[in-house]
């Protein structure tokens, strides 16, 4: 048995690929649900109802999708240029804590039109810095950035833990390690009245379109894709490799840092060490599910958020651990990889 590259890929195949992958992932986790003795179809129905059944749950799903869109974009931009940024989780936390620090210590009661943009930039810069370190190590010492960016996740969470246990600790939190809050004027306005959905969702959506435009229509997009497809070829064609990768790292780290900033300014107002249920890691899955396409990231983030929000209610009703959502999302990453492969290759005997 061997594989042969398809010369022509019909449009139907391209559209069907992600759908088939998700169907396969749902079928496989269906086995796990059935093994737990629960009705599979009812479980999926409850997930759907749990995620979109009411105004509250629908806005909650979109709120949950917001950081996933941003960390997904962060991974997609980086992976396109073969910058293996696995440090989204750390960048998320560093962005979050930078916002909490600047917001609570420096800004005082500056008006929102000043403090909100300033804080968003602060978060993005913090994320950038954390990704520039592994990229610099790669360029300087040829160290694989996968491992270094991963290890920095643990460092970043410990830095956050240190700060919210020390200088940034909220004295009114009854001894809980929790950062001081961002002033109310610096919180993002709500997008939907009486829900948690905030303008961060809009920002993430706009950024997805901006990045799509940048990747498909600008020199930056061309250079970053060239750097990913073949570094040697890119250098030969006159692409300044180090500078391009640095720019990619700034965009990617910035997006992940922004995700943390927006989560603080939109939802919580303060930082704890459980601010993120793995948004950085899920972002990698979101990017892969989207085939690294910025607009696909929006859909993939919605799918992932649907699973996570919907699984909460489903697990309570059917007595199934809500980890089934994590399993399904991880499985869909694997099935997606396989599906994309078979969309590109055919089997030859």
């Amino acid at each position: 048995m061997r594989f042969e590259r398809r010369e022509h890929r019909p449009l139907a195949l391209v559209i069907l690929t992600p759908l088939l992958a998700i169907a396969a992932a749902l079928a496989l986790s269906g086995i796990l649900i059935a093994a737990a003795g629960a009705p599979v179809l009812e479980a999926y129905w409850r997930i759907l109802v749990g995620a979109y059944g009411s105004r509250l749950s629908a806005t909650e799903t979109l709120t949950r999708a917001t950081p996933l869109m941003l960390t997904g974009l962060a991974a997609a931009v980086a992976f396109r240029a073969r910058v293996w940024n696995i440090g989204g989780e750390g960048q998320f936390y560093l962005g979050a804590i930078a916002v909490a620090a600047v917001g609570s210590q420096l800004l005082g009661n500056a008006p929102g039109y000043l403090s909100i943009p300033l804080l968003l930039i602060t978060g993005a810069v913090a994320g950038m810095i954390l990704l520039i370190i592994p990229l610099w190590l790669r360029l300087k010492f040829s160290v694989d950035e996968v491992v270094t960016s991963l290890l920095l996740n643990f460092v970043a969470v410990l830095v956050v833990s240190m700060l919210i246990d020390g200088p940034l600790k909220d004295p009114l939190a009854f001894g809980w390690p929790q950062s001081q809050a961002v002033p109310d004027v610096a919180m993002l306005p709500k997008l939907v009245f009486r829900s948690r959905l905030h303008w961060g969702f809009g920002i993430a959506l706009i950024l997805a379109f901006v990045i799509h435009f940048a990747q498909s229509r600008t020199v930056f997009g061309l250079k970053s894709r060239a750097a990913g497809l073949s570094p040697e070829g890119a250098v030969f064609a006159g692409v300044p490799l180090a500078r391009t990768l640095l720019l990619v790292a700034c965009v990617s780290g910035g997006l992940a840092g922004l995700a943390g900033a927006i989560e603080v300014m939109g939802v919580k107002g303060y930082v704890t060490t459980d601010l993120s249920p793995g948004f950085g890691y899920s972002g990698i899955v979101v990017a892969m599910l989207a085939g690294l396409h910025p607009l696909g990231v929006v859909l993939a983030a919605l799918f992932t958020a649907t699973m996570f929000v919907g699984a909460d209610g489903m697990s309570r009703a059917l007595k199934i651990p809500s980890y089934i959502a994590d399993v399904t999302v991880a499985l869909s990453l694997i099935t997606m990889l396989v599906a994309v492969f078979f969309a590109q290759y055919r089997i030859r005997r």
Partner: peptide, 8 residues
């Protein structure tokens, strides 16, 4: 693939 296996 490795990250996929880890998450799974």
């Amino acid at each position: 693939s490795g990250l996929g296996v880890t998450l799974f």
